[in-house]
């Protein structure tokens, strides 16, 4: 029973990750560029990261400091990268 409760959300997340990946790839192959596009792609990446942290790494079931470790890292990286990409836009 426990098994299904754990696997089913992860399978959905897996499909979601694939969909976001293909979208990113599609944008890449079409050569779309510009700050908005870049930030959107970065946004997808951050969402993917959060999903992996929450479901695959199981941080959703954790309370306290460790719950937010991956999230904090994503926010940090997201802020730095988007700031850098906004510099010469």
């Amino acid at each position: 029973m426990e098994d299904k409760k754990f696997i089913r959300p992860c399978t959905i997340i897996y499909l979601l990750l694939l969909a976001l990946t293909v979208t990113t790839w599609f944008i890449g192959t079409k050569g779309f560029s510009g700050m908005q596009i870049s930030l959107m792609v970065l946004g997808f990446a951050l969402i993917k990261g959060q999903l992996i942290g929450d479901y695959f790494m199981g941080l959703k079931q954790v309370a306290g400091f460790w719950r937010w470790t991956v999230t904090l890292w994503l926010i940090l990286v997201g802020c730095l990268v988007s700031y850098a990409f906004s510099l010469n836009a």
């Binding site: 970065l42 990446a45 992996i52 942290g53 695959f56 790494m57």
Partner: peptide, 22 residues
């Protein structure tokens, strides 16, 4: 498993950053 997911997680950022974002 946790370590392996981390390797995956890092690639989730690396892929768009290096291959796509322009």
């Amino acid at each position: 498993a946790s370590y392996w997911h981390m390797v995956d997680l890092v690639w989730m950022i690396l892929f768009p950053l290096v291959y796509v974002m322009r």
